[in-house]
Amino acid sequence: MSPIANDPRLPWDQRQRLRFAEALLIWRGAVSVGDIRDTFDVSTGKAERDLARYRRLAPDNLVADRLTGLFHPSDTFVPCLLRGSAGEYLQVLAHRDTPQDLPLAMASSGDVAAEMLEAPGREFDVRVLARLNTAIRERRWLAIDYQSMTHPEPRRLKIAPHVLAHAGRWHARAWSATHESYRDFLLSRICGLPELLEPCTRSADGDWDWQHFVPIRIGAHPDLTPAQKRVVEQDYGMLHGQREARVRVALAPYYLRMLGIGRDDRRRSPQEQQIVLLNSDDLDALNRLS
């Protein structure tokens, strides 16, 4: 994001109006003086001064249409107050009912229909989260009743959590005295309320899988046609035919699951498996491929 986004010389109220204007430029392809005036209930003169200020901040971003009074983004448009990404728009849609960013929520509330499907949330008692946070902050042992899929009934475990992680579901990364190893524990599978115990000396320092990172490289399925490969590479923002992310070893299985990739990618049809894992040997060596 441009340094302009945090320029203290830009008054807060004007910054909000300009962010709204830039959001319209990105998402709708046009903004007018009336959009700012009517949305924020300001005078026409103030809205005109807002757009004049924006043109000074980013002189190459706007093209004026004098017949309609609209301003359009230029071919060289570069956001200076927003990220300008599809993910930004998705976040606004996800929180439209309780907007966290009011100017962006107002900019997304036009006539364009947009619908989101979200996976069901894995609910758990929020007091479990509070106990885990306390145990992490105060470096204390925690006794939990945990229902795994390898045992028919919950088991009492003694753990020393050091971090929380969210990868579609909430996990606690912790040393398990019962297993004598670092493990992941799903918060939604903790039964009842954890019990805070005595202080412990276990920390994240000894968790090799948490402290170290592994590259995960993806590419288009080799059996796609050249045209299909190009669109898949564009879809995933690949450069020179691949995209790489550095992920904590402990979180690598969840990342692979989110992308739907793994050991058998190339055995599936390219129409079913459009992207493949390029460095499966790296993950296999760390025992992170299912």
Rank of each mutant, 00 (worst) to 15 (best):
Leu197Cys: 12
Glu198Trp: 06
Pro199Gln: 13
Cys200Ala: 12
Cys200Asp: 10
Cys200Met: 07
Thr201Arg: 12
Arg202Pro: 00
Arg202His: 10
Ser203Tyr: 02
Ala204Pro: 01
Asp205Leu: 06
Asp205Pro: 01
Asp205Asn: 07
Asp205Ile: 00
Gly206Trp: 02
Gly206Pro: 01
Gly206Val: 03
Gly206Arg: 05
Asp207Ala: 06
Asp207Thr: 00
Trp208Thr: 04
Trp208His: 07
Trp210Asp: 01
Trp210Gly: 03
Trp210Ile: 02
Gln211Val: 06
Gln211Lys: 07
Gln211Asp: 02
His212Ser: 11
His212Cys: 13
His212Val: 11
His212Leu: 14
Phe213Gly: 08
Phe213Asp: 05
Phe213Thr: 07
Phe213Met: 10
Val214Asp: 04
Val214Lys: 03
Val214Tyr: 05
Pro215Cys: 12
Pro215Ala: 15
Ile216Ser: 07
Gly219Asn: 02
Gly219Glu: 00
Ala220Lys: 03
Ala220Glu: 00
Asp223His: 13
Asp223Tyr: 10
Leu224Met: 08
Leu224Val: 02
Leu224Ile: 02
Thr225Gln: 13
Thr225Ala: 14
Pro226Trp: 14
Ala227Gly: 09
Ala227Pro: 08
Ala227Tyr: 12
Ala227Ser: 12
Gln228Thr: 01
Lys229Met: 10
Arg230Leu: 13
Val231Asp: 08
Val231Lys: 12
Val231Met: 11
Val231Thr: 10
Val232Glu: 01
Glu233Cys: 12
Gln234His: 10
Gln234Phe: 09
Gln234Gly: 06
Asp235Ala: 14
Asp235Gly: 13
Asp235Glu: 14
Asp235Asn: 11
Asp235Thr: 10
Tyr236Lys: 12
Tyr236Arg: 11
Gly237Lys: 08
Met238Lys: 12
Met238Phe: 13
Leu239Lys: 11
Leu239Pro: 00
His240Thr: 06
Gln242Trp: 02
Arg243Ser: 09
Arg243Cys: 06
Glu244Phe: 03
Ala245Trp: 08
Arg246Gly: 12
Arg246Ser: 15
Arg246Thr: 14
Arg246Cys: 13
Val247Thr: 05
Val247Glu: 03
Val247Leu: 05
Arg248Trp: 06
Arg248Glu: 08
Ala250Gln: 04
Ala250Asp: 01
Ala250Pro: 05
Leu251Arg: 14
Ala252Glu: 07
Ala252Gly: 13
Pro253Ile: 13
Pro253Val: 09
Tyr254Gly: 15
Tyr255Phe: 15
Arg257Glu: 15
